[in-house]
Structures are given as structure tokens and as C-alpha cells.
Amino acid sequence: MSYAYLFKYIIIGDTGVGKSCLLLQFTDKRFQPVHDLTIGVEFGARMINIEGKQIKLQIWDTAGQEAFRSITRSYYRGAAGALLVYDITRRDTFNHLTTWLEDARQHSNSNMVIMLIGNKSDLESRRDVKREEGEAFAREHGLIFMETSAKTAANVEEAFINTAREIYDKIQEGVFDINNEANGIKIGPQHSPANPNMPSGNQGGSSSGGCC
């Protein structure tokens, strides 16, 4: 599976806001209404395409519970993007955003792209946080903002892809040092000559030409 770039994401936010469901919707295109509490961190991955380039997203879905906070912090440094998620039906999850953002800024590299996500947009009737409030918070802190629904899949793709596009643009601008893997970005491997008869994987074979 060749790719031009590999981006590492983390998903953070209070417990129960739907982080694992967002990941599952993005990687498996399905929704699981009853999900076990995430313990520590779970991993997921998917390939996307930006401007004709294959980009591999590796996503670490963290546990929202306070008990796992120190574990979660270990993942900030090596991530290129973070999805900071709150639940539009629970104001307290919105109120905690500042704490999360401080934590993220403190432990991550300064270029990490943070996407603010108001999840559960399908539950309009129980809405507790206005869309405008989310937008205002994002503007104030320089984040990208989107409202999503992991249940209906609304905006889920866009959230992950827009974050990737932002990172991609930063790479093009030369903001990211792509040779430092601690930034959560990796350039795709050259087409490995060691196994030329690899029978699968090469979807979008032309895209591999784009790597570096």
C-alpha cells in the first residue's frame, strides 16, 4: 500500500462524546450505538486522497476518562492532527474544551492542526450548545470547526479529510519539518524493490509517483 504521506491523528475530548464512534464511522463506515468504554488508546487507519495524492491516516482514539489522561498525553507529541470533540447535547463537554486545548497545546508540537468537532448533530432536539458558540470558540483559538454526526455519518469524512488538507497545505508551505517524524508526518516509502510481485495494495498506482 503505497502512499505519498502518512499523517498521525489523535482524537481527544471528554468521555462519551463519540470519539470511538467517529473513528469507527470513518474507518469502517458503520455506527455502533453501544460501545465499550475505550481503555487507554485504540488504533485505526484509512487511506484518503487529497489532490490526487494518497494519504494514509493513522488515528489513535484516546480514552476520555480522566484516569487515562497521562496516557493520552503521551500521544500529543507525535501527532500531526488532533480532532477535539465535544457533544452538542452536553454543555459540560463544551465547557471542558479549554482544558483539553491547553493540554494539547502544552504537550504537542506547535504546528499540530486541531479540528474542533461538535458531534451528535443528529440530536438537534436535544441541542445544548449552539452552532455559533462552537464557531466562536474555534475562531477565538484558531481551530477549524465542524459539526458532525457519527450516527448519520454527516461531515465525518469531511472532518478527517479537511484536517488532512490543512496539514497538507502546511507541508506545501514548508511549515512542517517532514523529516522529523516526531511531527506525526511521514513521507511514503519508495516503491519497495524488495517485493516487486506484491499482488495487492496498489490501488491508484499513479498516485505513488507523487511521493517526494
Binding site: 487507519a45 494514509k56 493513522q58 517485493n195
Partner: peptide, 18 residues
């Protein structure tokens, strides 16, 4: 299991083949 998936998704199986 998480790391096993990561290993496979990260194409490390291909890389240990040689």
C-alpha cells in the same frame, strides 16, 4: 490487538517479508 492492527496497517508485514 491494537498494535497488531497498527503493524498491519503500517505495512510493516511487507517490511519484514525480506
Amino acid at each position: 490487538a491494537s498494535n497488531q492492527t497498527f503493524f498491519r496497517e503500517g505495512s510493516f508485514i511487507q517490511r519484514i517479508t525480506p
